[in-house]
Design a binder for these strands. Sequence first.
DNA 1: TATATTTGCAACCATTAAGTTGCATATTTC
DNA 2: GAAATATGCAACTTAATGGTTGCAAATATA
Lengths: 108, 108
Amino acid sequence: MKGDIFQAIADPTRRAILVLIATQSMTPNALAEHFDTSRQAVSKHIKVLADCELLTQNKVGREIHYYFNPVKMKEFDHWLTQFKKHWEDRFNQLDQLLINLNSDSNEK
Amino acid sequence: MKGDIFQAIADPTRRAILVLIATQSMTPNALAEHFDTSRQAVSKHIKVLADCELLTQNKVGREIHYYFNPVKMKEFDHWLTQFKKHWEDRFNQLDQLLINLNSDSNEK
DNA sequence: TATATTTGCAACCATTAAGTTGCATATTTC
DNA sequence: GAAATATGCAACTTAATGGTTGCAAATATA
């Protein structure tokens, strides 16, 4: 399943990496400081993300800066959008329901 | 990672099951006919989806009808929406770019 | 030039996941 | 009541995953 974006996003550490890198590009070392695992473990996650082109890289001296690549995320978004088409009405009703439930729970 | 919706959606067979069931509720047997794997394998996928509440069930005699449950899909949608917030402008630009590329490629 | 830093790659290990087969249970049909 | 059908559960196998450690290559610094 190499290069599968759904697989890549399934891991919570990789989702956290995506969020961090989407905010600002980072090196593997800088990234690893945000996690409890080893640098190599983080590097493997980076490799998975890069393999499915969610990340792009730019080498600067001995450092490698990883950037978020939204193109592939679009593909992911696309699946959900297509899926939602069947469900648009119900999704919208659900939105409203959740909003109502929420405002109810905030009332005294 | 039991009950994790990202994990559940990561598997292509399970995504196919979701699409089928979103269109109409089905029994495990009916579902299994759509795939090359055994009924039990499909049942295990159903269990994963039910465990994270993407499916709900309704027993009718000896049959069990599985329904799509959009509530949890909403949670999934929510993550992507939050993620996109940082990227809204770039996502929109990207939309336009992809549309342009596509219409270009359709030209003679 | 010698040393430190940043990174990737390979080997290995433990756990999980997806598939199979076999079987037990509940329900319908004959 | 016996046979057929629909389903779930358990055991087992194999492949994939996430983690570790060790090491090599490239670059920066002393």
